[in-house]
Nucleic acid binder design. Structure first.
Lengths: 169, 169
DNA sequence: TAAAAATACTCCATAGGTATTTTAT
DNA sequence: ATAAAATACCTATGGAGTATTTTTA
């Protein structure tokens, strides 16, 4: 079996919480799940990591040697998420033809009031999904019905025909 | 969905190999599996990581920003494995009563000849598993039949009764 | 048109939950 | 006697393989 992050998450949760039961609480899962994750980790690594009785949990020598590295691995992926969150500096609104009609002026103001940190950027893209499928837009305003399972949609206004908004999932 | 190491393994394999198909070869899996792992990673991170057509695969801006971290995370867990491999400096042979009988002298010599790097250490432990269940031995020599699903066993010699050897799995 | 990624479909492994058992103090 | 980890049992999620479809250079 291969080491997976879920195993490492269980390990640090147990070490930090002190017991499998409390670790399960923090992780939002069951004590049994934590127990199995630890066993899986020990199997994958081929070594006992936690010395445990029903009354006491402590790291083995091996365990204390690997714990810092386990934390670093988790920190690295947490860092990935932060990098991505920070790189989302703007919300790109795709449109194919006439932008948002009469909302064109109101929407940016309301958006800026509610999300001062993140600018709205309007992106013209004359495709069926107005840039969503192409990755040039995060949200798109379209005027034709679209039945693409990759995207969620919501109707915001009826003109002569419905005006759905589709968003990347 | 949560980021898992299998996703990161797929990512670096694709970047290194250049195509999903070749990455699948390296990983010993199928192209479809790699494709799904990348999609899962992008879903978990909430961002597109690889820009791909059927003819070309390249990192997105976000992708190149996170790739080094992905490699570091994988390096950290590879490091865990190395730490553990290095900490296995001896093989502890548990015995409960009379050690290995007439093998007591021959075994260490044959072992040393075959595995010069790793010393054999004999550990006395008067328990049913001669220290295996207790974690004080890696292998144990016992004289009584033992039917414990946690351990593998192999008969090495018949005395009056069979003499099984059980090993940790 | 060919090569490669995505998807559909199926199967199976395994993760997870609940309940119970085992174990150590 | 009790609190906690391990396990048994079941369900369901989702991961993997194969085959097919879609896509683009």
């Amino acid at each position: 079996m291969e080491v997976e992050l879920r195993h490492l998450r269980a390990l640090v949760a147990v070490v930090d919480a002190g017991t499998f039961t409390d670790a399960a609480d923090r992780l939002g899962t069951s004590q049994a799940s934590v127990s199995r994750a630890i066993i899986a980790l020990e199997t994958a690594l081929g070594a006992r990591i936690l010395q445990r009785t029903t009354r006491h949990v402590s790291l083995t020598g091996t365990g204390s040697r690997i714990l810092p590295g386990a934390r670093r691995a988790l920190d690295e992926v947490a860092h990935l998420q932060r990098v991505i969150a920070q790189s989302r500096t703007e919300l790109r609104v795709g449109y194919a033809w006439a932008a948002l009609g009469r909302h064109t002026r109101r929407l940016p103001k309301r958006w800026a009031a509610a999300h001062s940190g993140m600018p709205l950027v309007f992106v013209h893209s004359a495709t069926p999904t107005a840039g969503l499928a192409e990755g040039t837009a995060d949200v798109a305003v379209i005027r034709r019905p679209l039945d693409d399972p990759r995207f969620d949609r919501r109707a915001v206004e009826a003109e002569r025909e419905p005006l759905p908004v589709i968003t990347s999932r």
